[in-house]
Design a protein around this nucleic acid. Structure first.
Length: 477
RNA sequence: GGGGUUAUAGUGUAGCUUGGUCUAUCAUCUGUGGUUUGGGACCAUAGGACCCCAGUUCAAAUCUGGGUAACCCCA
């Protein structure tokens, strides 16, 4: 039955509207009265918390420490690195409250400058390196006025890691390592296939010499930049006077990297896994991994008694017992499906007779009758299986959308067909711009890791100049 | 930057052209009581709204002007 409580549009037919409905109706997040900003509700925040917990464990293993730097950045800091100021100037929000002789302050759009000012004081010796610091923070980028919750908003949450190394080699090695960490997290935790590679010159972070990226490919044929790891070279170090005494007694300029991902990942999670009934959460992300729905609970005290028993047994999965008396089972089924809970356990009088229950998987709708005695082991196994199968399913969808283009027409057609297109490119910014114009906004995504070498004597798909590398093209979020 | 559309309970809406039983429709929602329960149950009962400011008028949700906000289209 069509009802405005549920999702009223199909994912395939109108993805922007579908996305907005899923996010709001599942209570992940909500729009706010503040223009350009969204509210992350408890369910949405718990998903972010899952990511934070996972990543903090990884950071600990990688000897990265968490810290916190000011939200405000003096205007002059931006001007120290020429490309950095040029890249961020249009989207910086400024504080207008200040006394006459005070410097104007920006609200951080990213924290390189404010952090590196401190770094210059802290780093003296090669013994102080490598320095690896991460901060969890909120970020403001003001140019955005139309909100797409998690994907585009003026304020968002992220982590930014900022490391300093004594050698170029070590810096490059760890810049790449962090990208691998991101890809691993995307696939293991979020069950989202990661496409990794190097950004083109045009898409490189302002102030960096090289940007590694992991891209997620959405079901509507658009790519989403989901995390980046930048080799900053020595530009910021020079601009912020970071130097160290080497073993040789000489003064040296260190090498730096920065890397980050944001609450955008939650947007990807919704789009990749969600369906016409709402959210679908991978078990590792779901705050509640199973919900128990008793049938005829008021008529049969036995049902409630057993349901409570099961609830206790499934505590380690943070199972939820939905014992609301004023809601029918059908209502509950729909509601928990909307919220994406991985498993639903139905328990009614008919099940009690057989000492079993019905377990339904959210992501494929599969129903299984499970003996009550085997339930805990079954749930454990099933959750692991679902986590794996969700990644496989998502990966298969991405692979189906990958294609290659050797001519400009092929490229344009493939983009039109919502593909992720691999083609030769000359590496010129002007040529990238031309492609963007001709394809209705498709941009170069990345030179895929290990697959970006051009064929001998190959030419750029657009301008016909000698190709420098192979690169993915797709429309962009 | 230019053009268009809209603004009514928590949500979605009817009413506006032609001002007057509008004491504002319907559904959902929220509270309470009861009957229900294997795919969005039902009955009873209560609650909740005309974006803001001015003007016209005996009389404004409705007409006029201004403001504000949102959405859409074009550059």
């Amino acid at each position: 039955m069509a009802n405005e409580m549920g999702i009223t549009v199909k994912k395939e037919e109108n993805m922007p509207e579908w996305y907005s409905q899923v996010v709001v109706k599942s209570e992940l997040a909500d729009y706010s009265v503040v223009r350009g900003c969204a509210v992350i509700r408890p369910l949405g925040y718990s998903l972010w918390q899952s990511i934070v917990d996972y990543f903090n464990q990884r950071l600990n293993k990688l000897n990265v420490q968490n810290a916190y730097f000011p939200l405000f950045i003096p205007e002059s800091f931006f001007h120290r690195e020429a490309q950095h100021v040029e890249g961020f100037a249009p989207e910086v929000a400024w504080i207008s409250t200040k006394s006459d002789n005070e410097e104007r302050l920006a609200i951080r759009p990213t924290s390189e400058t404010i952090m590196y000012d401190s770094y210059s004081k802290w780093i003296r010796s090669h013994r102080d390196l490598p320095l690896r610091i991460n901060q969890w923070a909120n970020i403001v980028r003001w140019e955005i006025s139309d909100v797409k919750i998690f994907l585009r908003s003026r304020e968002f949450l992220w982590q930014e890691g900022h490391c300093v190394y004594s050698t170029e080699k070590e810096c490059e090695k760890e810049t790449k390592m962090m990208l691998k960490e991101y890809a691993k997290m995307s696939e293991e935790l979020l069950a989202i296939p990661a496409i990794t590679g190097i950004k083109s010159k045009k898409e490189t972070f302002p102030g960096a010499i090289r940007t590694y990226t992991f891209e997620s490919f959405m079901p509507d044929g658009k790519a989403l930049q989901s995390g980046t790891s930048h080799n900053l070279g020595q530009g910021f170090a020079k601009a912020f006077n970071i130097s160290f005494h080497g073993e040789d007694g000489e003064e040296h300029t260190p090498w730096q990297s920065s890397w980050g991902f944001s609450t955008r990942l939650l947007g990807a999670l919704v789009m990749v896994h969600g369906d016409d009934k709402g959210l679908v959460l991978p078990p590792k992300m779901a705050p509640i991994k199973a919900v128990i729905v008793p049938i005829a609970q008021d008529k049969s005290p036995e049902v409630m008694k057993k349901a409570k028993e099961i609830h206790k047994k499934l505590k380690k999965f943070n199972a939820h017992l939905d014992d609301r008396a004023d809601k029918s089972p059908g209502f509950k089924f729909n509601e928990w499906e909307l919220k994406g809970v991985p498993l639903r356990i139905e328990l009614g009088p008919k099940d009690l007779e057989k000492q079993s229950c019905v377990v339904v998987s959210r992501f494929n709708g599969q129903k299984e009758i499970v003996p009550l005695n085997d339930l805990v082991a079954f749930v454990d196994k099933k959750l692991k299986q679902i986590q794996k199968e969700m990644l496989e399913k998502a990966r298969k969808k991405v692979e189906e959308r990958k294609t290659k283009a050797t001519t400009y027409d092929e490229l344009k057609n493939a983009i039109e067909e919502k593909k992720l297109v691999l083609a030769h490119h000359c590496g010129n910014k002007e040529c990238e711009e031309q492609i963007k114009t001709d394809t209705g906004g498709a941009t170069t995504r990345c030179r895929p890791t290990g697959e970006d070498k051009p064929e001998p004597n190959s030419k750029c798909v657009c301008c016909g100049e000698k190709a420098k590398y192979k690169i993915y093209f797709a429309k962009n979020y």
